[in-house]
Design a protein around this nucleic acid. Structure first.
Lengths: 212, 212
DNA sequence: GAACATTTTTACACGGACGTAAAATCTGGA
DNA sequence: TCCAGATTTTACGTCCGTGTAAAAATGTTC
């Protein structure tokens, strides 16, 4: 019954949802899961954690999702697409200087950060090596495209003479992304410093960091 | 021998190791474990992985270590101490400018990076909430001290007028550390760019990043 | 080479987490 | 109110990973 006939996760998803209440519940599952994945990571989050936060027994989750991984993918995929598309839009803004585009890219990246801290790069890493069943590989593809855009952003800035030319674009882009992703491991929006301050710090350090 | 008298993990560890061969094997376990923890993280590494890499059955590991966690602690604790002490030594170098000290701090941080990519911050996060049994909390204490030193480093540089004064020292220090830790998720020493290039990129971006 | 200590393996107990199936409960409409 | 479908729960089954205990194998010393 699981993956009976063909490819992995081939079978049609559970599309039994009818009532408005059920739609809400489904959304609630995604919301809670998003929070908890963000806090503990995918691997260390159990369906019991999610079910508990939603207020049902673990098995009730299976009425809405066939697999734990499906929940993750349904959260991450749209988020990833938005990130990629927004960055692509920024890249097309030839009226804006590379420097300003870089600032926009950082802000865009961080905009997906709040409120649930779900960091693609971190979660993606967790899935390495195993669950290559289409959904995951699409996310991976999106994330790769995103990284490539970042590298292009750095390279173009260098060619325009706005950024330090002696830095390797890939190392530089990945360093910036790494810095922007790291807050998922330590930043508390309830802490002394606000999200806005964090973003401004990241923008400042990034812009200064790549200056010629 | 380890923390013999007190808290959890009360029973005395296996101190049966006598022969030179056994000492080598023990070291080999630590080496392999270090590599694999670095690649897959602590939680996703099984004793079978380690045993396989060493070339014995999983259970043989228990002759040398009582718990999986003991292996991690024995790897991480000395590494952590070194990091903390080295940074403290850098902080005492009042003959060196804050700017140069920051560069030294980055290089010191990255020196513990090769060859096994065991990133304290990342692994520590994995242990959150659960295994507070003395050994882990000591490591956490060391890591906190390390972070505090970093914050001091930034603050002193600001007070000396060498770094941008409007940045929050904690956000800044954590951003830099995050950037320096991130390579554990993507850097391949066998890739096109060398460790030296990576470190120089990080130093450059950091020093520029905090410039006034 | 025989007794003894050291090291490794075999065999097993246990718990945690995912996933399935069917029974039970709830809800809205006729 | 009663029924049919929607939703949740109860009850299992299974796999995987840690850890224990005792037997087997290996090495060492006299």
């Amino acid at each position: 019954m699981k993956n009976a006939i063909s490819r992995p996760s081939e079978r049609r998803p559970v599309e039994r949802v009818r009532s408005a209440r059920a739609t809400e519940r489904r959304a609630s599952i995604l919301d809670r899961a998003s929070e908890i994945f963000g806090q503990k990571g995918y691997g260390r989050t159990t369906l019991d954690d999610i079910a508990g936060a939603v207020g049902v027994k673990r098995e009730a989750i299976y009425y809405y999702f066939d697999h734990k991984l499906d929940i993750l993918c349904e959260i991450i995929t749209p988020e990833s697409k938005r990130l990629v598309e927004d960055l692509a839009a920024i890249m097309r803004r030839h009226d804006v200087s590379p420097r300003d585009r870089l600032a926009m890219a950082v802000r865009n990246h961080m905009s997906g950060f709040n409120p649930d801290f779900l960091q693609l790069a971190v979660v993606l890493r967790e899935l390495d090596g195993q669950d290559d069943d289409g959904r995951v590989s699409e996310i991976r593809r999106l994330w790769r495209a995103y990284q490539e855009s970042w590298i292009d952003l750095v390279r173009e800035g260098q060619q325009a003479g706005c950024f330090a030319g002696h830095l390797d674009p890939r190392l530089t882009a990945f360093s910036i992304l790494g810095m922007c992703n790291a807050p998922s491991t330590w930043f508390q929006p309830s802490g002394e410093r606000s999200m806005e301050e964090l973003v401004e710090t990241l923008v400042t350090v990034t812009l200064n960091g790549v200056a010629p």
